[in-house]
């Protein structure tokens, strides 16, 4: 090869087509927005049924998770995600899909070492760093309250 790694990297980049932003961004925006609208609909429904704000919020999350799990089971969530990208990744439905899909995929390795062990394969980091950040915040808050 006459090229250096840098020169080759530039050639490879020139020949690698970029993602079509005019397609992906509207896809993510619209589908992500619609998922949030569904959440709003559920939130309003549960609130008008007399639930308090916290309970309605929790039940909304649970319902969205259930819907996502069902769509994942039928193999439809990934079909939507192909067009939605971050639109199906960022909402809580994406978190549910990240938990359900490995559970389903790895059941051939058994319910303990397959499903049980691999269930947080993708979503694990979200819980790990979410909890760690919240614990750190709690400690800082405790110190500032004490001072």
């Amino acid at each position: 090869m006459k090229l250096t790694e840098n020169e080759y990297g530039a050639l490879a980049k020139r020949r690698s087509p970029d993602t079509k932003l005019y397609k992906t961004i509207p896809g993510a925006f619209v589908i992500g927005g619609l998922i949030c609208c569904t959440g709003q609909l559920l939130l309003n429904l549960y609130s008008s049924a007399g639930l308090d704000k916290t309970a309605a919020g929790t039940l909304t999350s649970v319902t969205l998770v259930a819907l996502s799990a069902l769509l994942t089971g039928f193999g439809l969530y990934d079909k939507i995600a192909k067009h939605a990208g971050a639109g199906t990744l960022v909402p809580i439905t994406g978190f549910a899909n990240a938990v359900v899909s490995p559970a389903l995929e790895f059941k051939t390795e058994g319910y303990v070492l397959g499903v049980g062990a691999k269930i947080f394969l993708i979503a694990g980091p979200v819980i790990v760093y979410g909890l760690a950040a919240s614990a750190l915040y709690g400690i800082i808050l405790f110190i500032t309250q004490a001072v």
């Binding site: 690698s16 990934d78 995600a81 990744l89 899909n97 899909s101 995929e105 790895f106 993708i122």
Partner: peptide, 17 residues
Amino acid sequence: ERQFRFPETYGGQRPPT
């Protein structure tokens, strides 16, 4: 897919490359 990438039903987008 399951060895190198993601579960079949995971919703990911593949880049054009």
